[in-house]
Amino acid sequence: MTTYLRSHLKQLESEAIYVMREVAAQFERPILLFSGGKDSIVLAHLARKAFYPGRIPFPLLHIDTGHNFPETLAFRDQLVDELDVQLIVRYVQDSIDQGRAVEETGPNASRNALQTVTLLDALGELRVEAAMGGARRDEEKARAKERFFSHRDEFGQWDPKNQRPELWNLYNGRKHPRENFRVFPISNWTEMDVWQYIYHEGIQMPSLYFSHRRDVFVREGVLLAVSDVVQPQNGETPQNKIVRFRTIGDMTCTGAVESTASSLADIIQEVASARVTERGARADDKRSEAAMEDRKKQGYF
């Protein structure tokens, strides 16, 4: 070979697979955090490629807030069937019932923050040494300095001042008992990379990402879907609009965007011309400028 040509997608894929294999080789009881969103679907696809022709050698862990879009759960179950992988679900409702978490009240009540409690409990219960997530460095400022192998103390907390230097492709997963790691195999991907990869690989996606008609209303600049758990309050009027979601999370804080993008090609076009970040439609990040950083320190995904 005299020339070296690898597309950016190929390089990003190879890097992610390398990281996942390091996780499988270096840790006992790794898991893959599965939210039902596109990033975790891409992770599952990468895991399938990484260990082919074998099965994915770790389970998927889903923290169910109880406020999921029904589409998310249906898609999750089909995917798990197809991948022939173990699925573990832990419920925020259980944490609330056990008194481990206290439900927020008021019109903006969300279980998003409570997920952290359930997640940390689940990681402890399952004695997970490494939890892989689909977070990307381009998503948010606090994540720009995140490591591939992110060390957490025994309380699941992240200390931004105490992260290990990461050089070349050497990932140091050594740890003391009860400490654990969060690992982010697609750290270097952008939203655009993710969509191009989905298109290139023909990865199936939940219908929520494509345009559809839905009853929505505006709250603090975010377009929320009307559902059992999210109802318009005084002065908020629901309208039936053609929308889609750029991220999929808890129904209480995942905003929709008005869009007619009904295919991956449309979505890629839309992302290319978008002038607002995908997290811009998330109510949880708007709470304060350093909102993400605070949640991370507590052990958020």
């Binding site: 898609f75 089909q78 298109y199 023909g202 199936q204 996606m205 295919s263 090609a265």
Partner: peptide, 14 residues
């Protein structure tokens, strides 16, 4: 709820 196969058709048409 769209099934996966329906979405598949959507994506290949693009």
């Amino acid at each position: 709820i769209d099934t996966i196969s329906e979405i598949q058709t959507q994506t290949t048409a693009a």
